[in-house]
Amino acid sequence: MSARARPGDPHKIVPRIHLEGSPYEIGLKHGRELKLQISSQLDIYRDIFWDYCKFSWEYVRTVAEEFKPTIARLAPDLFEEIRGIADGVGDSSIDLLDILALNARSEIALGQWDDGCTSVAWNLGDRQIIAQNWDWRSTVGANLALAHICQRGKPDIWMVIEPGIVGKIGFNSSSVGVCLNAIRARPISTSLIPIHLLLRLALECTSVEEAIGKIESVGGAASAQHILIADKSGGRGLELSPRGGVYLDEDPNGIVLHTNHFLENKYMDEAPPLSGSPIRLDRARSLCAQLLAEFPSRELQRKGLSPSSIRDRIFADTYNSPQAICCSPDLARGPQGDVETLFNIVMVFEEGESPYAEVLFGKPDGSSNMSAILALPWTR
């Protein structure tokens, strides 16, 4: 089903899908309901892989095939879901390897892609906020969707998804939420789980500690990535790589901030980060410091730091544009600069309350492509 954004939305209709049943049934419905978007995503990623990596789609599929036994062994339910997506699309030109390629697209790129993304977790005592701007290729924005996943014996999950991919940014009914910052680094390992599947596995857990244990139990991440994770008790930054992970704690103010370079993890070969990444991190620290000066106590923070204030005071910021927290395409870089903020999400976990989030598609700086604010969970 699809749902129209709130009145006044200048942007678009955002697909919302409700998925439940066995892993294969969840994937089958995903593939059927988003088949047009999945086909479009495959076209987009064929172009991206060739334009930025000079990888043919035939080569991409060979790398995806290397992940096939790993995913089937370490995450069999998600493998069945991916198989269901491929069958659900119902197109003879699209098969399991194509859908596996989407789910491992960060790893197949071998750390060659630049993107943005700024994420923040803020512990306010009895309230936890976890939020990010997700920056990626402009063409992907038209295909984004919202998903609600119900699985027996696991928390309900609400995510913003790239169609065809089983895990992304969102939260669950146990008040566990995840954000993602891509890191341009090597190596990768096809014997480990791709990052988007790790995001989903984390969202099937009931606490941060359980999610960390799950990630460790499957051996960690197949590529260098940062997962910002939080529950009602606080947030952690997981700087992951195939060679090992480093976990970042909250600072004295209960804050964890991250952009697109590792802060402490040295277990990889990191390429020079996108020049805007350190600048965005410093800018986010400065903006948080301004809010701390305005709301110095936890009591004032709980009253003053709402999803709207976090979105407006941090994530709408355009300092150092185009490589700003609120990112715009960098036309001077040619096609590789075609990256912008595609959505903002602010998740809130509170003692004694059900978790919720606000999602805004487009750039949250008041620009013409900004959608109305959508609420998660939604009423079916």
Rank of each mutant, 00 (worst) to 15 (best):
H30M: 09
H148M: 07
V14I: 13
I165E: 04
S173G: 05
G213H: 13
L291D: 05
I255V: 15
F55M: 14
S175N: 08
L124N: 00
S39T: 14
R285P: 04
E299R: 13
P335I: 15
E65V: 04
R186F: 06
R313I: 07
I229V: 11
R380G: 02
R32D: 12
K232L: 15
I161D: 00
T259N: 01
F79P: 09
L281N: 00
G84H: 07
A324P: 02
A64W: 00
S174D: 13
A230S: 11
S207C: 11
T118H: 01
S174Q: 12
D47M: 04
V166W: 00
L74H: 04
L100D: 09
W158S: 07
P377C: 11
S321F: 02
P76D: 03
L97C: 05
D9L: 05
P335T: 08
G170D: 02
A202C: 14
L192I: 11
S175G: 04
S309H: 09
V359P: 11
E350Y: 03
R127T: 15
N369K: 00
F349G: 12
E270K: 10
E66N: 10
Q301N: 08
E107H: 07
L97V: 10
G220K: 12
A86E: 04
K266H: 13
I227S: 00
A145L: 05
L376A: 07
R73S: 14
S93Y: 02
F262A: 04
G164A: 11
P296Q: 02
P335L: 15
